[in-house]
Design a protein around this nucleic acid. Sequence first.
DNA 1: CTTATTTGACCAAG
DNA 2: CTTGGTCAAATAAG
Length: 374
Amino acid sequence: MEQFNAMHQDKLLVDQLTQGWETANQLKGHLPDDVNSEALIQKILSTYDKALAMLTGSWRAMTEEDLTPNSPEFGTGRMSMGLPSPLNHPHSPIASTPSSEVSNGEKRQKNVSRKRKISAKWNQEVQVCSVRQDGVSLDDGYSWRKYGQKDILGATHPRNYYRCTHRNSRGCLATKQVQRKDEDPSTLEIIYKGKHTCSYQTANSTSTITFSEPEKPTKSRKTTPPNQEVTTQQQTLQNLAQGLTVETDHSSINKMNTNIDQAIQGEGEVIFHPFSFPFTTMDELENQQDVHFFSDAELMDGCSPTTTTTSDSCYFSSSSPFDMISSKYDLTNLITTPTSAINSPFEELDHFLVDDDLADCDPNIPLDSFAYLA
DNA sequence: CTTATTTGACCAAG
DNA sequence: CTTGGTCAAATAAG
């Protein structure tokens, strides 16, 4: 319990520091374009970075001691990467048996249960993440098919429901829910449920996630040629990938954001680009020190720090990268950004936030390339 | 033609 | 009753 409190406190600290960082970063945009101001702001940001790095580092150390070594299986749990990002709050992932897919073309029988029963079986395989979407692309390597959209009470944006395209052909029961966050519309909350059993990933696939705003009549789908919107980002990221010395000024960042905004708001469509995670094994991944995994147990019990593990979640290792996402940092900061996870078992344990800009990076860039330099 | 998305309806849980 | 998750017919796109 003491440990819990301590960790909770750490989490609050992280939140506060993150806010500070963000505020400072915003301030940066308002300051005159003068070298001194810039230097000062950078120093402030740097201070936040260090504090965050120290905090999250300690948190990690703490939780990792308590890892449950034998977590059952991969593909479960939550992953977190990319720091400073406010933690999120989740849901209670409970899912149950996806009861038989209604295969008879007929009208469903009255008693066919459709929904909540599906929960039980899946509660071990829920991942939740929040994705900063500005300037980002993402693709988790799987192909998804949208099967529903719901307006959620109290939420401005509808929730979109996707299932694996291979549900029928291979019985893959993985699903995900994607919802734009109210507080920050550029952030998507993605909840993964179920594990992919469709064994291979659609390499280089580009998944399209479509958000139709409720108020907007959606008669014509597909209005935008996908890849045009993000060309700038891709180039920028390619640069990043190639040289690791990125010249990123705010205009390019802003441009990236604008492009995405246009994609989101104008066309109601966001294209997630392929992104492959560079690691092939958990060890490899963990060695990067920037990624955290959470066990299902942790996910499920909602607040037990002692179940944190780094060994059981593995959408990554199964060749299929989880989407990486964006950061609150701009690319300029990326390289010296702490990317350690700040996932906290508190809150409700179901979210993680990833770095936006990072998401757009070439998958082959090891995360530690961006490691924070103390 | 096949495949994907939209969207109202259905259903279970609370 | 309300809410959220799912289904499936209609529709659009390729």
